[in-house]
Computed example of a mutant assay.
Amino acid sequence: MTKAAVFDIDGTLVDSVDLHASAWQEAFARFGHHVTFEQARSQIGKGGDQLLPIFLSAAQQQDYGNALEEWRGERFRSNYLPMVRPFSAVPELFRRVRDAGLKVAVASSAKEDELDIYLDIAGISKLVDESTSSTDAARSKPAPDIFEVALKKLGIAAVDAVAIGDTPYDAQAARKAGMRTIGMLCGGFTEGSLRASGCVAVYPGPGALLACFGASPLASGA
């Protein structure tokens, strides 16, 4: 029986994927690397520890990887964070989950200060039992660390929890942690890529999951 829902936030609850991709693209250009928007976007959902090795050699990461990531973070916060908007029906979905007796956590690769802002933007700051950010885990998704920390904070076994995310990296991380995953199309990844990564159900976005809640993996006994 499902006892907890563990949500990703970027691309799942708030519309931020394109904004993150633009910030990464600018950061790589700043340090002399041509990375297209599409290339950057395909990696959103990972933290910097998993994303940088896709585009930088080990020597480049050691030389200026931290500086590049710091520049990206400052650029995102100053130029792009004010443009982040929530997807529809997010608070309503969280209330429905809580009314069903489930605990709720948010498990994100975002920085802790960004995560707090996202929770406010989405209108769910008071509807979350636990949250985890990149500061809580040594490795970001698709490693399972962030989900494992969330489960530990909730005091829930992996088999009794369902992850909800918009990227293959969410599903891969959740599977490694022993969890089922619901995929969301609102982050821009295809249904095929989400199912291939292990999603047991896929919905267009939070509103659709709310509308189909009774038949979803979040429903008791589903």
Rank of each mutant, 00 (worst) to 15 (best):
D15G: 05
S16D: 03
V17I: 12
L19K: 09
H20S: 01
A21N: 04
A21I: 05
A21D: 05
A21G: 09
S22V: 14
S22C: 13
A23M: 02
A29M: 04
R30N: 08
R30Y: 10
R30I: 06
F31C: 03
V35F: 01
V35A: 03
E38K: 14
A40N: 00
Q43F: 13
I44A: 01
K46M: 13
K46R: 13
K46N: 07
G47S: 03
G48L: 00
D49H: 03
Q50E: 15
L52T: 12
I54N: 14
I54S: 14
F55W: 07
L56F: 12
S57D: 04
A58F: 12
A59H: 11
A59S: 14
Q60R: 08
Q61K: 11
Q61V: 12
Q62K: 15
Y64W: 11
G65R: 06
A67E: 15
L68K: 02
E70M: 08
E70T: 09
W71Q: 10
W71T: 10
G73A: 12
L81I: 12
M83E: 11
V84M: 08
V84K: 10
R85F: 05
R85T: 13
P86E: 03
P86H: 00
P86T: 02
S88L: 10
A89R: 15
P91V: 01
L93N: 02
R96A: 14
V97T: 11
V97N: 03
D99F: 00
L102I: 00
K103I: 12
A105T: 12
A105P: 11
V106I: 11
A107M: 05
S108M: 09
S108I: 06
S109P: 06
S109W: 02
S109T: 13
A110H: 01
A110R: 05
A110T: 04
D116R: 13
I117H: 06
I117E: 05
Y118P: 01
D120M: 04
I121F: 10
I124R: 03
S125P: 11
K126M: 12
K126R: 15
L127Q: 08
V128Q: 06
V128N: 03
V128P: 00
D129I: 09
E130K: 12
S131Q: 11
S131D: 08
S133R: 00
S133C: 10
D136Q: 09
D136G: 07
D136I: 07
